[in-house]
Design a protein around this nucleic acid. Structure first.
Length: 466
RNA sequence: GACCCUAUCGUCCAGCGGUUAGGACAUCGCCCUUUCACGGCGGGGACACGGGUUCGAAUCCCGUUAGGGUCGCCA
């Protein structure tokens, strides 16, 4: 335990997981996995007012979504619930006794004293050097206001301990070896180091990582859409994409590689390669990483995430459909190469799961792809498809293109009417592949229905024109 | 007000005394193309500013400016 790495992520349950917090958790997790150490989750719920089980659940589920598993910490959102690890409790609200013991220790050692009903820490007056693995040695003298009264509160007059105190006590008692956290804590680290010394122990190693800013360079606050991890979950990003992108913000393997699998990240991640400057969050780049990660994802994984997305999007797939369901699987795999957000999948694949008579076009689609004169084209196409012996994409493509040549039109003149007829949309997966998945019968029924609709739009007209 | 951190294309990174300053995303043009995309080719685009040090600075030092952070009986 003495030399193996122990890191922790210690969020306060505020009701949401900040994207910067998620990255802090990620860096801690990567460092633990990279070094073969342990990743500990500790809930800093000392502020009774804001703490709720639901707020803790947001953190647990967010970390699980990202795939960041913890070796020690809570099993459930309940503060008094089960946990794993020998250094608990892992909720600060359950550690009141430890803080009292430690406060008494400081008091008897002459490091703390009472004033106005609160317990104060006797802060050293000299500058404190903070050795940091990211920014190097930082000398932190007292500020002008601190000069006036350098001591600070450990325990409030109402008996509640403050953050700086509980944070240090817990890090100390949980055997934390490396504190990896946001740079916003850098200045305050002097207080923490002073406390560790007062307890007579060596402080942990520190690594303060740069902050994530909005795309305009301003501070990312709860107000900003996109500051919450939930935003990316809700918008259909793949967890591996968010993970990958977050790493790119402030860390680089130096060789230009940008796309990583999680195991690659674990093996290549180095604290020493973390940048010193803040980074702006670039949604376009995240989109790109999602695109790449989604396309190279293995089929099972893609189908699994796809099914969840369809259910969430109210697409009526069989209730018992699993990732091995041949039709669901084949349908979803026609869109994997598109690299769309999972939240867009319902729009791109719902036609697979609709009844044939539920395929209808909106006015724009109708006008663009199914004008009156489309009826004869669709009729010819239906007939040509009837002659295809095996209803597979390659044969369908050859058939359609052959017909285009016969009719003296570009393939696109057949493709779009066909697409609109069988999917009701102007965009979607590769036509030939979606036809194959849909199958001969469904395609035929939908083509016939479309022909009928087109003709009914203006009876007698389309045939005359043809 | 004080203190701390930071500063390369619009954005994210590479560069760590000698480079035509490189890559990715974004953007623009062309090609390919069944939609949306992908892909291919090409273009524009940066060392914040001022002083030093040095034969020679994006790289080292100082200052200025700018951005961020901290100085709570918030976390």
């Amino acid at each position: 335990m003495s030399d193996s790495v122990r890191v922790r992520f210690a969020p306060s349950p505020t009701g949401y997981l900040h994207i910067g917090g998620a990255r802090t958790a990620l860096f801690n997790w990567l460092y633990a996995r990279h070094t073969g150490g342990r990743f500990i989750l500790r809930i800093e719920d000392t502020d009774q007012a804001r703490n709720t089980d639901a707020a803790v659940e947001v953190i647990l589920s967010g970390l699980r979504w990202l795939g960041l598993d913890w070796n020690e910490g809570p099993e459930t959102a309940l503060a008094s619930g089960p946990s794993r690890g020998d250094f608990g409790p892992y909720f600060q609200s359950q550690r009141g006794h430890r803080y009292q013991v430690r406060a008494a220790e400081l008091k008897s050692g002459g490091h703390a004293y009472e004033r106005d009903g609160a317990l104060y820490f006797r802060m050293p007056r000299e500058p404190i050097t903070i050795p940091d693995q990211v920014v190097g040695d930082v000398v932190r003298p007292l500020t002008d206001r601190e000069e006036l009264d350098p001591d600070w509160v450990l325990i409030r007059s109402d008996g509640q301990p403050v953050f700086h105190f509980v944070n240090v006590v817990d890090d100390l008692e949980m055997g934390i070896t490396d504190v990896i956290r946001g740079e916003d804590h850098l200045s305050n680290t002097a207080k923490h180091i002073a406390l560790f010394r007062a307890f007579g122990v060596k402080p942990p190693r520190y690594a303060h990582i740069p902050l994530i800013l909005n795309d305009d360079g301003s501070k990312m606050s709860k107000r900003n859409l996109g500051a919450s991890l939930q935003h990316y979950i809700d918008n259909g990003y793949a967890p591996e994409a968010v993970l990958n992108y977050l790493c790119l913000l402030g860390w680089s393997p130096k060789d230009g590689q940008e796309l990583f699998s999680i195991s690659e990240l674990v093996s290549r991640f180095e604290l020493s390669a973390i940048n010193r400057s803040n980074a702006r969050f670039d949604l376009k780049k995240l989109d790109h990483v999602h695109f790449e990660q989604t396309r190279k994802m293995n089929a099972d994984r893609f189908v699994q995430l796809g099914i969840e997305a369809l259910r969430k999007g109210q697409v009526e797939i069989p209730a018992d459909a699993t990732a091995t369901d041949p039709f669901v699987r084949a349908a979803l795999l026609t869109v994997q190469e598109k690299g769309k957000l999972f939240s867009e999948l319902p729009l791109w694949t719902d036609f697979y799961f609709k009844a044939d008579d539920a395929i209808v076009c909106d006015a724009e689609t109708q006008a663009k792809a199914l004008p009156n004169l489309a009826a004869p084209i669709l009729e010819a196409l239906t007939k040509a498809f009837d002659g295809v012996p095996v209803f597979r994409s390659a044969a369908l493509e050859a058939t359609l293109k052959g017909l285009a040549v016969t009719l003296g039109v570009k393939a696109g003149a057949l493709v779009q009417p066909c697409r609109a007829a069988v999917t009701g949309k102007l965009v979607g997966p590769s036509l030939y592949h979606l036809l194959e998945v849909l199958g001969r019968e469904k395609v035929r029924r939908r083509l016939m229905a479309a022909i009928e609709r087109v003709e009914n739009e203006s009876p007698g007209f389309s045939r005359q024109r043809a």
